[in-house]
């Protein structure tokens, strides 16, 4: 990936994504945290576009920024008597250590592995191929996913139902 514009866009979006994700740790208000999470999701979608995955990027915005975050807002608004701050618990230090280890480990692996890089350019179009892939080699997981969605929907309804 050599195009200067795309490289600049990638790093800018990466900075935005990680910055927004880091704000998730820092902000006090849960509602602000959700908004930063949405910003982070949108940033990830932008990263997908720079990696020439336009269908996934749009799906990311549609589902993560448009639906899952709204679900989270619903969850927060439906639990008004609970505390709405975003404080940490006693696991903060171990979590920090663990996170640092994850970054170190993955960076080490990423840099030390010899990847079989294809060196091809960006994809022209992905939607049609994804559709075909979903319906020919991945048709069983596709159907299972729909079953999973139905099961999740029924489960969610059962859990929150008034007894």
């Amino acid at each position: 990936m050599d195009d200067l514009g795309v490289v600049i866009a990638f790093w800018a979006l990466a900075a935005m994504t990680i910055g927004a994700a880091a704000m998730l740790i820092l902000v006090r208000n849960l509602m602000h945290a959700i908004l930063f999470l949405i910003l982070s999701f949108v940033g990830v979608a932008g990263l997908y576009i720079t990696l020439s995955a336009d269908f996934v990027a749009v799906a990311q915005v549609l589902i993560y920024a448009g639906a899952i975050s709204v679900l989270m807002i619903f969850a927060v608004m439906l639990t008004p008597l609970s505390e709405r701050d975003n404080s940490g618990n006693f696991l903060q230090l171990p979590a920090l250590v663990l996170s640092g280890l994850v970054i170190a480990g993955v960076t080490f692996v990423a840099l030390e592995t010899e990847w079989r890089e294809a060196g091809r350019g960006s994809f022209d179009t992905t939607a049609a191929e994804i559709g075909e892939a979903l319906l020919s080699p991945f048709v069983l997981p596709f159907e299972i996913a729909s079953v999973l969605l139905v099961a999740a929907m029924i489960g969610a309804i059962v859990i929150v139902r008034d007894d």
């Binding site: 915005v61 920024a65 448009g66 709204v70 807002i73």
Partner: peptide, 10 residues
């Protein structure tokens, strides 16, 4: 376009 319209909600 649909993705855009869903972000307006937020």
């Amino acid at each position: 376009l649909l993705a855009l319209s869903s972000t307006t909600t937020i």
